[in-house]
Design a protein around this nucleic acid. Structure first.
Lengths: 108, 108
DNA sequence: AGGTTAGATAACCAAGTGGTTAGGTACGAG
DNA sequence: CTCGTACCTAACCACTTGGTTATCTAACCT
C-alpha cells in the first residue's frame, strides 16, 4: 500500500485521530493513551500498530514503558493533497471552473 | 460513521483518489471514469457509492447515463484538520514544541 | 523469589472491503 | 420490436478490520 493510502486509512478512525490529538501534548505511554477509551489494551495496541505502520507515530523503550511520540510528517502529504482541491471547495469556484471549462470547449 | 472518518476512508484508496482527480476536469459518466482502470463495472460502481456516501461526488441522470460530479466540500474539513498539525510537520518545530512544553511544565 | 504492572501476541469473531460473475433495468437506435 | 449500451443489484469470495479474551514476556518493587 502506498504511503498516502496508508495515512488516509489510519486517519479514518476516530480513536486513532484522538490518539494523535493526545500526542500533540507530548509523548505518552500506551496506558495513558488507552485511558480515555473504554476499549481493551489489545485494541489500543492494534491502533498503535496501524499508526506506526503509517509512520504517524514512533515508539521508544523506557523500562517497561513503550512511550509513543507523534510524527506528523505524513500529514504534510495529506495537507498538500487536499490543498490541490481548494479551488473546488467553494461553490462559486465550482461555477467559475464550469465556466472556464465551457469557454475552453467553445474555443476548440 | 462521522463525516471526517467517512471522508478519510473514501480517500484511502488510490482508485477513488484517481476518480476524484479525473473529476476535477469536469463531470464524467461511469463508463468514462472506469476506462483508466482494468477492473469491472460493478467494482467502479462500488467505489462511486463510497464516494457518494462520503459526499465527495454527486450523481445526476441524463438518459441512460449517470454523470458524476466532484463535490470537494468534505475536503475542506480534511485540509483544516491536517492544518492543525502543521507545526509538527517540521522537526525544528517539534523541538520548539518540546521546549515550549518543558517551559510550561517548569512554570507550574 | 514472588507479585504487580506495562505491554505484546495469539486465537477468535462479526462486520466491512474490494473484487468477481451473472443477471436485471432503462434508454436510444435501427 | 429488437438489439446494444450504460448502469445497477445480487450473490459470492478472500482478505482486512476492530473488537474481544486468554496468555505470554519484561521490568519494577518488595
Amino acid at each position: 500500500m502506498d504511503q498516502l493510502s496508508a495515512t488516509f486509512a489510519a486517519l479514518a478512525d476516530p480513536t486513532r485521530r484522538a490518539i494523535l490529538a493526545r500526542l500533540t501534548d507530548g509523548p505518552a505511554t500506551v496506558k495513558e493513551l488507552s485511558e480515555p477509551f473504554d476499549i481493551s489494551g489489545p485494541a489500543i495496541s492494534k491502533h498503535l500498530r496501524v499508526l506506526e505502520k503509517a509512520g504517524l507515530i514512533t515508539r521508544g523503550r523506557e523500562a517497561q514503558w513503550r512511550p509513543c511520540q507523534l510524527d506528523a510528517t505524513p500529514l504534510k502529504e495529506v495537507a498538500v493533497w487536499a490543498e490541490n482541491y481548494r479551488r473546488f471547495w467553494d461553490a462559486s469556484y465550482t461555477r467559475l471552473d464550469a465556466l472556464l471549462t465551457e469557454m475552453k470547449e467553445t474555443e476548440q
